[in-house]
Structures are given as C-alpha cells and as structure tokens.
C-alpha cells in the first residue's frame, strides 16, 4: 500500500521569478521510491515545468546532486522511506542556480580540468613498450581517490568553498592527489603550484564534511591533509633551492 508524502521543492525559473520560492507536491510512494523517482513522478504527473538533472539512476554518473533537508545527496541514492517527516529539496548549495534543481557547475569543472587530471609522462609510451606494472600497494595509494564521480556534493558541503569560491575545493584536490600518487605519472611538478597555493590545500581547515557526504566513500579531506604534507615538503625543498 502506498503512502503520500508532502515533498517541498525549491523552484526558480529565471525568466519568471525574481528569486527562488518553495512549491509543495503530494507524492504517493512505496518504500523503494528514490528521490529521483519522486521528481520523475512530479514531472510526469503533476508539473511538467520542473527541471532537474539526472542520467544513470545508479550513483555512477553524478548528475542528480541536490540538497535534501539541507544535506547534499544524490537523488538516486536517497529514499523517501528515510524521511517520514517529509522532505525539502533544493538545488546543490554553493553553486549558482540555473533553473529549479539545475545548478551551473562550470567553475567546478574548470577546477577539475585545471589540475591536469590525467597521467603525464616525460616521454610518450607506445603500446610496444608494454604495460606499466604496478603493485597492489602502489595502486592502493590512489585507488579510492579515483572513485570520484564528479557529482559536486563535496563542494556543496565545503564551508571554505562556500566562503570563497577561489578555493580549489575537495574533489579537485583529491583528484590532484590521485594523479600525483600514481606511480605511472611523472607530472607532479606541473600540479604542485595548485597544491601549494592558499587556494589549494592550504585553503582547507579540515572540517571534513566533504568526506561525510561523499556518495562513493572517497575521503577528499584525507587527500587534502596528505597534500599538505606534500606541499610542506615542497616548501622546505624550495627554501633550500631558492634559485628555482
């Protein structure tokens, strides 16, 4: 038997509204229903004007990030049954709202791209060179940080990014750490400037909420603290070699 839940959604249509406002919908639900399915029900049955982003429905694509009762969540991985008191859904915090639950992620994407998130080799390898062998231990150095799906929940959680969006932020710094600690990579020097800056690892005060909200159990806060160790070593080396 299905129950009905009052779902409140923050709406914003830039051509009509001066500012976001709340709209309430009654959604019949069963215990299997995800927030994403509730939004689909609203769009199909109640209000076709509602906008939201989604794709895979299985916590892989990272499209459906949103605030549920003030906490950054993936719509597909959050279920109505866990909110018997009702739910309030908003666009992801700390990002400019484009429309309803759709946010502008261009700053986030630019930061991910800036840190060169790919393996850099001093000399290009060809298939004839064979595989790059890595031990399980070497892989463990970076594996969890490669699980990021770029959903942006950690940026919505990060108080530092909220205060100053020049901060590189959790996902970009975790990705930087991921490539700097891959034994196949030789591009660490090209990434250190991002890590060493005030807007890099040093902009983090280790609140740790980024790691709490990550839907893929990545620990960006740990990556940033390890990045601080790397950056501190780099600082001492730079002091000893002032010419460079």
């Amino acid at each position: 038997m299905s129950q009905v839940m009052k779902v409140e959604i923050q709406r914003y249509r830039p051509e009509l509204d001066k500012e976001p406002f709340w709209q309430s919908y009654d959604v019949p639900y069963t215990k299997e229903m995800s927030v994403l399915e509730a939004l689909a029900y609203i769009k199909d049955e109640l209000d076709p004007t509602l906008s939201y982003r989604w794709s895979c429905r299985m916590a892989i694509c990272g499209s459906c990030g949103m605030m549920v009762n003030g906490v950054p969540k993936l719509g597909c991985k959050t279920f109505l049954r866990d909110y018997p008191q009702g739910m309030k859904i908003e666009a992801l915090a700390n990002f400019p709202i484009e429309r309803d639950l759709v946010v502008d992620m261009s700053d986030f994407i630019a930061k991910l791209e800036a840190i060169k998130p790919y393996i850099i080799r001093e000399t290009e390898q060809t298939p004839e060179d064979g595989c790059s062998i890595q031990t399980p231990k070497e892989m463990e150095q970076y594996r969890q940080f490669s699980m990021c799906i770029n959903c942006g929940l950690c940026y919505a959680a990060c108080p530092q990014y909220g205060l100053n969006d020049k901060f590189m932020g959790p996902a970009a710094l975790a990705l930087l750490h991921r490539y700097n600690n891959d034994t196949r990579d030789e591009g660490k020097e090209e990434r250190m400037a991002f890590l060493n800056a005030h807007e890099g690892a040093w902009g983090c005060t280790f609140v740790g909420y980024c790691s709490d909200v990550c839907p893929k159990k990545v620990d960006p806060a740990a990556a940033i603290q390890l990045g601080k160790v790397d950056s501190a070593k780099d600082y001492v080396i730079a002091m000893l070699k002032p010419g460079e």
Partner: peptide
C-alpha cells in the same frame, strides 16, 4: 598561483 607561507604555521 602564489605559494602560500602556511606550511610554516601548519608545521608548528
């Protein structure tokens, strides 16, 4: 990007 002098204070 400018290098931060934070490592000194963070070290202490």
């Amino acid at each position: 990007m400018k290098r931060s002098n934070e490592p000194v204070f963070w070290g202490l």
